[in-house]
């Protein structure tokens, strides 16, 4: 029996180029069709990348192909969600992570602005109420206000 130390171990250098398993291009095609649909009918699309059998390197290749555009945002809710527009305007990447920074979902969204970034109606209503409350309490606390009446 070989001693443990006798078993040769050599560490291979990580390859410079990520290996390609050919799954990035089909997604890019799907994005292209979604973008065409949006241009014609203003129909948004969301693509869940969890359902795609990516091999190692496929995701990096796709992201490299999509590149980065002008907009970038972070939403802080249940952990960070990073949102950025790719170099193809209208094509967004949404990278959802939990509070520990581990990814829980990765999506591509084709829209003018991703759903996640929009403020929801209910929140606006709540926000109006909150603002009113803030105003009321501010007014109550301001002695100068009464003197104006």
């Amino acid at each position: 029996m070989a001693k443990l130390a006798g078993i040769p171990i050599h560490i291979e250098q990580p390859e410079a180029e990520p290996q390609q398993f050919g799954n990035a291009l089909p997604i890019l095609n799907e994005i292209r069709h979604a973008l065409a649909r949006f241009a014609e009918r203003a129909e948004p699309t969301r693509i869940d990348l969890a359902a795609i059998p990516f091999g190692p390197g496929d995701e990096e290749r796709l992201m490299a192909l999509l590149g980065r555009g002008e907009v970038e945002a972070t939403i802080d809710a249940l952990g960070p969600t990073r949102v950025w527009e790719t170099r193809f305007p209208g094509v967004w990447v949404l990278d959802y992570a939990n509070v520990e920074g581990e990814r829980i979902a990765l999506q591509i969204e084709i829209d003018e602005i991703p759903q996640m970034l929009r403020t929801q109606r209910a929140d606006i209503t709540d926000s109006l109420a909150a603002l009113d409350a803030a105003l009321a309490s501010a007014t109550a606390a301001d002695p100068a206000a009464e003197s104006r009446h």
């Binding site: 809710a77 249940l78 969600t81 949404l94 979902a105 999506q107 996640m116 929801q120 209910a122």
Partner: peptide
């Protein structure tokens, strides 16, 4: 939050 909930639903 509602955004958080939406994220939860997406996940």
């Amino acid at each position: 939050s509602r955004r958080g909930f939406l994220k939860f639903c997406a996940a």
